[in-house]
């Protein structure tokens, strides 16, 4: 069961992902979640939040900053170990593969961390999916624009109707076993070169 008293600190400069993760943790019953987006005064923020576990986005180069703070953490009397158990590479693997790093304060029991780590990992994966979908949508939009431009070129150069221009592109794509957008790109590039 989620322990609402557990203090969790998220270090993530990506606002969207941080809020997805924060929301997920709250839904799971962890109400004590603090988020750090600004890397300035990170040590101060950690001391203030006094977390049991810290999550950080692995694409964040500031991960090395955090590691050093743990090295010198003796001076702030907050010894921190990474990942729970020194032999549990499966847990590390799951975390690293999803893109989330977990730092666990000494003394926190493994079972308690496991459930929030699982939660964080699934949320991070959900975010990556969301990002992939966004990228795909963006790419589709780009491709549609290219096809429109290629159609325009064919209509102008060959005096074709819009439908005829589109059919011509599709036919070429099928014959050459290439994607419509690739053929359209060739038309646009060729038109530019022949100008």
């Amino acid at each position: 069961m989620a322990d609402p008293a557990l203090r969790i600190l998220l270090v993530d400069q990506n606002v969207t992902r941080a809020s997805i993760l924060e929301e997920g943790l709250r839904e799971a019953g962890y109400t004590n979640v603090a988020v750090v987006r600004d890397m300035q005064n990170l040590l101060r923020r950690i001391v203030d939040a006094d977390p049991d576990v810290i999550f950080i986005d692995l694409e964040n180069p500031n991960r090395d900053v955090l590691e050093q703070m743990f090295q010198v953490s003796r001076c702030v009397r907050r010894p921190v170990a990474m990942f729970v158990d020194h032999s549990d590479t499966d847990m590390i693997r799951a975390a690293v593969e999803s893109g989330v790093g977990a730092y666990v304060v000494d003394g926190l029991r493994k079972e308690r961390v496991k459930s929030i780590l699982d939660m964080a990992v699934s949320r991070f994966n959900a975010f990556s999916q969301l990002r992939d979908e966004l990228d795909r949508a963006k790419q589709e939009l780009e491709e549609r624009k290219i096809v429109e431009r290629a159609k325009g070129i064919l209509m102008k150069e060959r005096g074709l109707s819009e439908d005829a221009a589109y059919s011509l592109l599709r036919k070429a794509a099928m014959n050459e076993n290439r994607r419509l957008a690739e053929v359209a790109q060739s038309v646009v590039t060729a038109a530019r070169l022949l100008k």
Binding site: N60, R63, D64
Partner: peptide, 11 residues
């Protein structure tokens, strides 16, 4: 992006 990632991904 970070040395910690290099270490973890090797490990």
């Amino acid at each position: 992006t970070s040395w910690a990632n290099i270490r973890d991904r090797v490990v």
